[in-house]
């Protein structure tokens, strides 16, 4: 019963907030660049100091775009999971999807001594990392879904997700125990989550998989809405359950998997953003929710990144720590305020 028109005002507000946080994200960093110069560079001009040009184009812009893509993708994958599993606590992190991606990345980084000749550092390696992490998240997701089709209880599903999470964690642990210090360090840095290390070609790769994921989600909108009734009702409404389930899973795997591959595991965005979005857009219609979580997630991660940079200081905090520190209280607050989380 809802259409875009009803929500023009919140969408306009979100769009402005997105623009604002994007500019803020580019404008702030360890080196002070006057805001007028920043704007100048963004809109095609040059800054009064040529090194600022370089910083903005090759460091801050890719980072801001990564935050934008990663935030959107994680938020959308959280929404997909919550609707698919009919569980307000579902999200890429909770269901072990991020751990799956970690496992894939760990196998590649730390297990690569076995294939060391093949992998040279460069574009191919990044692509391989993305593929490995995406594959890892797919596999865990498939395992969770297989078990989920046998247990109807949604609580059990979360526990299964947690179990898969600790299992993959254990395998990662064993791998780290036997690996060389240098590779271990590489993996640990990856697991902190960082959105600041992507080059433009890597960014293009991330953008492609995220866009495909978003496109698949758009095709899943109708079945997502129907799934709000429950699987039996969805079936009685002529929805091909198996096909829509796989569509949603592939989309989630692409979104969460590729982001985790490039930016490391980033917690809570996927879980918290759909709930925050539902507070603003009081609807369950996925035609509204999908674009809304995309924008909301981007804003949130851009702002988290602003905090993580500790503007004007030399230090940068791991982004994963910031999203957890900000995200966990939000989820608790939602739980306490609404007594139970409704989705």
């Amino acid at each position: 019963m809802n259409n875009f028109g009803t929500y023009r005002r919140p969408f306009t507000f979100l769009a402005l907030a997105l623009l604002g946080s994007f500019l803020l994200n580019i404008g702030l960093g360890s080196i002070h660049i006057p805001f007028s110069d920043t704007l100048n560079v963004i809109f095609g001009g040059t800054a009064s100091n040529s090194s600022w040009d370089y910083i903005i184009w090759n460091y801050r812009m890719p980072k801001a775009f990564t935050a934008l893509l990663a935030g959107s993708a994680l938020a959308l994958s959280g929404l997909l999971m919550q609707t698919l599993f009919r569980n307000p606590l579902a999200g890429p992190f909770v269901l072990g999807i991020s751990s799956g991606a970690s496992l894939g990345a760990a196998l590649l980084i730390m297990g690569s001594s076995l294939l060391s000749g093949i992998l040279s550092f460069g574009f191919l390696n990044d692509a391989a990392l993305a593929v490995a992490a995406s594959l890892g998240s797919f596999l865990v997701l498939l395992a969770v879904v297989t078990v989920a089709s046998r247990v109807k209880d949604t609580m059990a599903l979360l526990i299964i997700g947690l179990m898969f999470g600790s299992m993959t964690g254990a395998i990662v642990g064993i791998l780290s125990y036997f690996t060389e210090a240098e590779k271990l360090q590489q993996f640990v840095y990856w697991s902190f989550g960082s959105i600041g290390n992507l080059s433009w070609p890597q960014l293009a790769l991330l953008a492609t998989s995220v866009l495909i994921g978003i496109l698949l989600s758009v095709f899943a909108i109708k079945s997502l809405n129907t799934l709000l009734l429950g699987e039996n009702y969805a079936q009685s409404l002529g929805i091909n359950l198996k096909r829509s389930r796989y569509l949603i899973i592939v989309a989630t795997g692409l979104l969460a998997g590729s982001v985790t591959a490039f930016a490391g595991p980033i917690a809570f965005i996927g879980l918290a953003v759909p709930h925050l979005t539902r507070q603003v857009f009081r609807t369950t219609e996925h035609k509204i929710l999908v674009p809304a979580v995309l924008v909301y997630g981007a804003i949130l991660l851009l702002l988290c990144d602003v905090v993580a940079q500790l503007p004007r200081s030399e230090n940068v905090l791991p982004i994963n720590a910031i999203t957890s520190i900000l995200g966990a209280p939000v989820v608790i607050w939602l739980l306490v305020r609404k007594k139970r989380m409704i989705f």
């Binding site: 909108i221 709000l228 429950g230 409404l237 539902r278 369950t284």
Partner: peptide, 29 residues
């Protein structure tokens, strides 16, 4: 009309009833 509870109780009555039209709507509903 089944005995199982609705997956999402956050649906409004109008949204819930409109979902009954799903078999007739286009690809995006």
């Amino acid at each position: 009309v089944l005995t199982e509870p609705l997956a999402s109780k956050n649906l409004s009555v109008a949204e819930l009833v409109a979902l009954g039209r799903q078999p007739y709507t286009n690809w995006i509903g």
